Simulated assay, not measured.
Amino acid sequence: MKSGNARQAMNRGLWDRTDGLSHQVPGSGGPDGNNYDPLRLPPSLQPTNVYGLDYTRFPRCFKIDIPTVHIYGIKDPRYTSSMQLAHFCAEDKRRVYDHGGGHEIPRTTKVSEQIAELLYWLEKTMEEQKSYM
């Protein structure tokens, strides 16, 4: 306790240590600096190489063609899989949200409201598609 390490560890969140991840977690501003938008896939992540997969080689008929919502955190050890799954879904029918945390979703009002908004969008989109059938 004298060195303060135990106290510092208590103040650190479970997902704050990111040095062992297979992807880079930059400082403030998200994956692409100040231009980062948590409601868009990172622009630096090109469809030709999404952690080893080239999505330009997959025909659209192989993609998931229903409305989808992808909620993930940049500090999650499974972030790379989240990006691959999101790219397997039809671009015009998917919504994404990076809550900025790890594997557990942060329990803040802002995050909860954003997730609720995405789920309302999903419900509305599914209802609209049902009426076309």
Rank of each mutant, 00 (worst) to 15 (best):
M1Q: 14
K2N: 10
S3H: 08
N5D: 15
Q8S: 14
Q8G: 07
A9V: 11
L14N: 03
R17S: 04
T18H: 00
G20L: 00
H23G: 01
Q24Y: 03
Q24S: 04
G27P: 03
S28M: 04
S28H: 04
G29K: 11
P31W: 01
N35E: 14
N35L: 11
Y36M: 13
L39E: 08
P42M: 04
P42Y: 11
P42T: 05
L45C: 11
P47Q: 06
P47T: 07
N49I: 02
V50C: 08
R57I: 03
R57N: 07
P59E: 08
P59L: 11
C61L: 05
K63H: 15
D65Y: 01
I66Y: 09
T68M: 13
T68P: 06
V69W: 00
H70D: 04
I71K: 02
G73A: 10
D76G: 03
P77N: 06
S81V: 02
S82D: 10
S82Q: 12
L85A: 12
L85G: 04
F88Q: 11
C89S: 15
C89N: 14
A90E: 12
E91N: 13
E91Q: 13
E91A: 14
R95P: 07
V96P: 05
D98M: 07
D98H: 11
G101E: 01
G101C: 06
G102V: 00
G102Y: 00
I105Q: 02
P106H: 12
P106S: 14
T109N: 15
K110E: 15
K110I: 13
V111Q: 11
V111T: 15
E113P: 01
E113L: 15
A116M: 10
L118A: 02
L119I: 10
L122D: 05
L122H: 11
L122F: 12
E123V: 13
T125P: 03
M126Y: 09
K130A: 15
K130M: 09
S131E: 12
S131T: 09
M133H: 14
